[in-house]
Structure formats: structure tokens, C-alpha cells
Amino acid sequence: MTLALLETNLATTFVTSETGRIVSEDEPGLPPGPRLYLAGCRYGTRVRLRHDVDDETARIIEALVAREGPWVDPATDPACLAEMLARLTPVESVSRSILYRLPHGLTQEAGATILRGDTAEGRAWLARLAESGMPQHLLDAGFLGAGDFWEPWCVALEEETIAAMAFAARIGQQAAEVGVYTFPGFRGRGLAAAVTAAWSGLAELVDRPLFYSTSVTNLSSQRVAARLGLPVFGAAMRVT
């Protein structure tokens, strides 16, 4: 069951070719994916190579991964990491993340008004925002317009100020992954957990497995997962 969940997560993370190569990230704008992506759980490990990695290198790396046991701990290196990196030289970066399963219909005390994008109220609010222009604190965080509210979404409002938001970082027919952002000045108050919980209850998501992931260095995001009691099901590594 967990290995199937890992494969569903992989299918939601990337756009792939017919041969299983990474073409791009499966998110708005379709940015290029990593040259290598490794995902593991206690039932097994899966590797994906980008389309521009030559076939011989891809075969060697796939064989290295296949002969090893499951990689489950993002705090430790897979035994074959050094050999994989040598095949991919030059390497710019290696990053690791924790994969969580996000149950549907979580509840969490908000301490703020939660506005959902799938309601008439939410749609009217977003239309007003698009007409009046993005507040400066959203622009400072890189949100350029209403199109950056990737559907489905929900926000936490302090009076009329957006304090935190949850949105579909990735969504496909098989599954969806939440993206969460709390704006400076509102952090440390549990709002990220509140909007994540609200997002998990959106009607559009009810038939899809839901995921939450975070870098091993992002302790605040890990605290959100802990506050919500999210179960860890795997680990991932990106090589660029």
C-alpha cells in the first residue's frame, strides 16, 4: 500500500515521457525538473531521471538503485549516492525532503477567518482582490496576481489582511499536494496548520490522496506537520 502511495506521489510530482523520464515539474509554468529524483519508503525505492540524462547513465543509475534495499531516512545518504553523483558530474545541488500523507477533512483551531476558494464568498473576494491589486506583502512574497492562487485554495484572514494560504502546489487526476505559505508578521501562531487542515476538506480533493512535503532543513514546516499529526510515509532526494 505504501509503495503504491509512493508511486502515486511520483506521478503527481512530474510530467514524464512515455519512457518514464522527467520532462518537467507538474505545476503551473512547468519548470524543469531535477536531473535525478529518488523517492523511498520501507517497501522500496524509485528513481526518475530527467530526459536530458543520457541513456547509458540512466541505465547504470537505475541498476544501482535496484540492487539496494529501501532508502527511508532523509537524514542519511543512500549507499549508492556517491556513485550516482559521480555519474551525473557536475552536480549543482543535492536536497532531501520528508514525504507526509495528508488525511482528508482535518480540523484545526484557526484563530483567524478561513476563506475557501470553492465558495461564492471566496470567489467574490478573489475577484475584488484582482480588481484592486495585490497587497504589498503579497507582492513582496512573490505573488504577482490572482492567478498565483493555485486552485483549489483557502486563506486565513486577519480582518482584511491575508495572513496565510494553502493552495494546490500540484494537482492531477491521481493525487494532489498542498503548498502552504504564512506571511511574515503572522508566523508562529498555527495559521499554516489551520489553512492546511481547511484545504484538506475541500470538496474538489475528496477523491484524491493528499500529500504534504517539506525539506529536511525546514523545521517550521515540520512543526506544521507535527501539529497536524501527519504520518510520514517516505523520503525524497533531488539532484540538480
Rank of each mutant, 00 (worst) to 15 (best):
residue 90 P to A: 05
residue 201 G to Q: 13
residue 200 S to M: 06
residue 111 G to A: 07
residue 11 A to V: 06
residue 103 P to Y: 01
residue 114 I to S: 09
residue 110 A to K: 09
residue 140 D to V: 10
residue 166 A to R: 03
residue 211 F to G: 11
residue 188 G to V: 04
residue 106 L to Q: 12
residue 210 L to R: 08
residue 217 T to V: 10
residue 183 F to P: 14
residue 144 L to F: 01
residue 182 T to M: 10
residue 60 I to W: 03
residue 57 T to D: 02
residue 186 F to L: 07
residue 13 T to P: 06
residue 139 L to C: 02
residue 217 T to H: 08
residue 177 E to K: 05
residue 28 P to C: 07
residue 56 E to K: 02
residue 211 F to R: 02
residue 193 A to S: 15
residue 238 R to A: 08
residue 214 T to G: 11
residue 228 L to V: 11
residue 91 V to C: 04
residue 86 A to P: 06
residue 130 A to K: 08
residue 89 T to L: 00
residue 62 E to A: 15
residue 68 E to C: 14
residue 63 A to T: 14
residue 85 L to P: 01
residue 14 F to W: 10
residue 4 A to P: 07
residue 215 S to L: 09
residue 138 L to N: 11
residue 11 A to L: 12
residue 11 A to S: 15
residue 199 W to N: 06
residue 183 F to M: 13
residue 21 R to A: 14
residue 150 W to N: 10
residue 15 V to P: 02
residue 79 A to K: 12
residue 221 S to Y: 10
residue 204 E to A: 15
residue 86 A to D: 15
residue 18 E to S: 13
residue 213 S to R: 14
residue 56 E to P: 00
residue 131 E to T: 04
residue 227 R to Y: 11
residue 240 T to I: 08
residue 47 V to F: 08
residue 235 A to W: 05
residue 45 T to D: 14
residue 195 V to Y: 01
residue 59 R to I: 01
residue 191 L to A: 14
residue 36 L to Q: 10
residue 53 V to A: 02
residue 33 G to S: 01
residue 28 P to R: 05
residue 113 T to L: 01
residue 88 L to F: 00
residue 160 E to H: 10
residue 211 F to E: 04
residue 181 Y to P: 00
residue 229 G to Y: 13
residue 209 P to L: 09
residue 215 S to D: 13
residue 63 A to Q: 09
residue 151 E to T: 10
residue 46 R to Q: 12
residue 112 A to V: 10
residue 204 E to I: 00
residue 95 S to T: 10
residue 34 P to C: 09
residue 56 E to A: 07
residue 225 A to W: 12
residue 91 V to T: 08
residue 84 M to W: 12
residue 135 P to M: 08
residue 33 G to Y: 04
residue 52 D to A: 03
residue 235 A to I: 03
residue 102 L to E: 05
residue 96 R to L: 02
residue 191 L to K: 13
residue 117 G to F: 09
residue 149 F to N: 03
residue 84 M to K: 01
residue 9 N to V: 00
residue 161 T to M: 07
